[in-house]
Simulated scan of single mutants.
Amino acid sequence: MQTYTSLQWARTAIWFIPLLWAVNYYVARQAPGVVEPYTLATVRWGLAGALLTVAARTELWAQRRHIAAVWHQYVVLGFCGMVVCGAWVYVGAQSTGAVNIALIYAASPVLIAVGSVLWLRERMRGPQVLGVAIALAGVLHVIVKGRWTALSEVRFVAGDLWIVAAMVAWAVYALLQKVWPSPMGPTARLAAICWGAMPVLLLGTAWEMVQPQTPPLTPHAWALGITAALVPGIAAYWTYGWAQKMLGASKVAVTLYLGPLYGALVAWLLLGERLGWFHLQAALLILPGVYLVSRPAPPSPG
C-alpha cells in the first residue's frame, strides 16, 4: 500500500525532473561537430542500460520469461523514449536552440493529459484542469516572449519539427507505460527499455560511422555521452517512471511545463542564450499550474 510519505516524496521529486532533462539540452547543443546524433544516443543509452542492468540483475533474471513474452513492448517503448526522444532530439538540436527544445517539449503534458482521460480513463478534477490551463498560458507567454500580438509570427525551423516528433513520441511513451503495466520495478523496466532501443540506435550509429563527415569519438564526445547517460538518462527517466506509478500519468506530465524555465536557465548560464522578463512572468503562471495539477485530492467525506 502506498504511504503518504511516498506520495509526498513523489510530489517533491517531479519538480526536479525537468531540471534533470534540461542538462540534455546543453548536451544536445554541444554535440554538433563533436559527436553524431545516433552515436551520442547509443553511448547514452548503452551506458545507462549497462548500469541499470547491473543494479537490477536479480530482478531482470527473475522476470526473463515476462520480458521474452512481451519483448515487442520494450522495443516500442525504446523506440519512442530513446530513439525519437534521444537521437532525434540531437538531430533537431543541430538547427534549433535549447530554449526552443524546452518550449516544444512543454506541450507534451497536453497530449498526455488528454490521452490519460480518453485512453486510460483517468479523471481530472476541476483544480487540475485549471492548473493545466494556467500552466499552458505560461508556456504560450514564453513562446511569444510576452508579446501576445506575436502569435501569428511564430515560425518553426527544421530542427523544431524533429523536436515536435520527439514531443509526440514522449506522450506516447508515457501513456504506453500505463497501458502496458509491468511486474518489474522502475530500474529493471528502464533497463529492459534501454535494450529494446539498441537495435535501431546501433543501426543508426553504424550508418553514421561510414559517413565521411563523421567526427571521431574524442574524450569530449565520451564526456557528453556519459553526462547524458547519468543525468537526463538514468536519473530523469527513473524518477519519471517511479513518480508516474505513484501519481498517475497526467499529474506527472504537467511538470514538463517547467521545461521552458529550466531550459532557459541552462541556456543562459551555459550556452549564452539570452533571457527576458517574460520568463519570470511565465514562471508566475507555470509554477502555480504545476502545483494545482500535482496536489493531492481532498479526502472523501465519511
Results as ranks from 00 to 15, higher is better:
Thr58Phe: 12
Leu284Asp: 09
Thr5Asn: 13
Cys85Val: 12
Trp9Cys: 11
Met167Tyr: 10
Val231Gln: 02
Phe278Lys: 04
Thr12Asn: 10
Leu111Met: 15
Gln281Ser: 14
Gly86His: 02
Pro183Ser: 05
Trp71Asp: 09
Ala13Gly: 02
Thr96Ile: 05
Val70Pro: 03
Leu20Asn: 02
Gln94Cys: 02
Tyr237Trp: 13
Pro299Leu: 13
Ala221Ile: 04
Pro301Trp: 08
Ala87Gln: 01
Pro18Cys: 00
Ile101Asp: 08
Ile143Val: 15
Glu36Ser: 15
Tyr4Val: 11
Trp148Arg: 05
Val110Thr: 12
Gly302Phe: 09
Leu51Gly: 07
Glu122Asn: 05
Ala41Gln: 05
Leu136Pro: 02
Cys85Pro: 06
Ala235Thr: 13
Leu265Val: 10
Ala267Ser: 13
Cys80Asp: 00
Ile14Glu: 00
Pro18Ser: 00
Glu153Thr: 13
Ser250Gln: 08
Leu265Lys: 04
Ser116Pro: 07
Gly131Trp: 05
Gly241Glu: 08
Val231Pro: 10
Ala253Ser: 15
Gly92Glu: 00
Phe156Lys: 00
Gln177Lys: 12
Leu269Ile: 13
Ala48Asn: 09
Leu77Val: 04
Leu151Pro: 07
Ala22Tyr: 03
Ile226Asn: 06
Ser294Gly: 04
Ile67Met: 13
Gln30Pro: 03
Pro219Leu: 06
Val34Pro: 08
Arg189Tyr: 12
Val254Ala: 09
Trp238Gln: 10
Pro215Asp: 08
Tyr4Pro: 06
Ala253Met: 11
Tyr74Ile: 01
Arg147Phe: 05
Phe79His: 08
